[in-house]
Design a binder for these strands. Structure first.
Lengths: 192, 192
DNA sequence: CAGTTTATATACCGAGCGGTATAATTACGG
DNA sequence: CCGTAATTATACCGCTCGGTATATAAACTG
């Protein structure tokens, strides 16, 4: 079992650095110090390896977000919880997070995008539902729940990517204060 | 010269649909109805083709934004102008815009990212400078110009990508009113 | 210890990759 | 109408791609 996890780790490193399409199976097995049949024994195909990598690691994000996104009557508090949980997951799994981001923006007919598509859907479903539940407090969103969901995650992701870029590789601490200010910016704009 | 532009067009279609790494040179020349040496005569390499495609088409964005981003003492008005110009460019060149977006989020060691990197830098330099010029009106940004630039473009891009996704292929009309509401959301938040 | 399952390596497959040497064709100025 | 330069095609290069048939080693199971 040691090999399997090692392959996943090496694949993540390479996919993160170059992207799924630009990495060959040969490259992965060399980095992992094994041979091709071993990889194919565990994952069946290069695409299967990607799927396994994505679905297993995505569990963390999914459960953390699902817990945080339970609307409790206070929009700001809920948004803060979600943002905290999300940022924590992202920073604890920085490479995986950046891989997810890059794959989310992949062309829609790219094979690798098909692997993230269900994850993206699940993801936005959670956030969108949160905004729907907050209808009472937010008032007439008139069907802008989706726009809000996209915008909210967009603000956070843009910030995280900017930070990740600057502190390339180094460990990054993002304080609760910063997260709260991001949520505040989403709700009240930049000059308030 | 007819061939050259045809190759560029076909390359854009394919890169847009599948991504640079997932498209072979053979595929491009077949779609363009020519043979490989013709492509290599004009562009020297697959990467050279990408560079030519990016730099020529990016001119539009660059000049349009540079004109719109001249700060005139009114932040809201300037942001509106920039957003209008940007959205117009993006919608007039939808495939190219989506290609740019997908490449912007490419892993940093991916070869194709090296081709967009200078464009991205130029792009953000323009937006960042606009926020710096608006210092008098926006007040104490205390070095958050970059964060604002990233956030502003992030909001617009997230919205555009969402729209492009829904109206896949069809022509898209985005009214000035919608753009103004996006700028308003950036400045004053969602519930104002 | 025999039999079976699990795990790994050697050596190979056809196909497609990016790229090119050579030659034929076209366009055009003298 | 000839020579030259700009274009385009035929046919090929070595290499890497994703994937596999076969054999072997290790680890359980009875």
């Amino acid at each position: 079992m040691e090999n399997k996890e090692n392959i996943l780790k090496c694949a993540l490193d390479l996919f993160y650095a170059k992207g799924y399409d630009a990495v060959g199976v040969q490259e992965i097995v060399e980095k992992a110090g094994i041979t091709k049949p071993t990889l194919y024994y565990y994952f069946g195909s290069k695409y299967g390896l990607l799927e396994t990598l994505l679905t297993t690691k995505f569990q963390l994000f999914s459960t953390a977000l699902r817990n945080a996104a339970k609307y409790d009557g206070d929009v700001t508090a809920t948004l803060n919880r979600v943002a905290m949980a999300y940022v924590k997951c992202a920073m604890d799994n920085q490479k995986f997070y950046m891989l997810l981001m890059s794959m989310f923006y992949l062309p829609r007919e790219n094979e690798a995008y098909k692997a993230v598509k269900p994850l993206v859907r699940e993801f936005f479903f959670i956030i969108k539902k949160m905004f729907e539940d907050a209808k009472e407090q937010l008032g007439n969103m008139n069907h802008r729940e989706e726009q809000f969901a996209v915008g909210f995650m967009g603000v956070i992701n843009c910030y995280l990517i900017m930070i990740c870029e600057q502190g390339e590789g180094k460990e990054i601490r993002i304080t609760e204060e910063v997260i709260r200010s991001l949520v505040h910016q989403f709700m009240h704009g930049i000059n308030s």
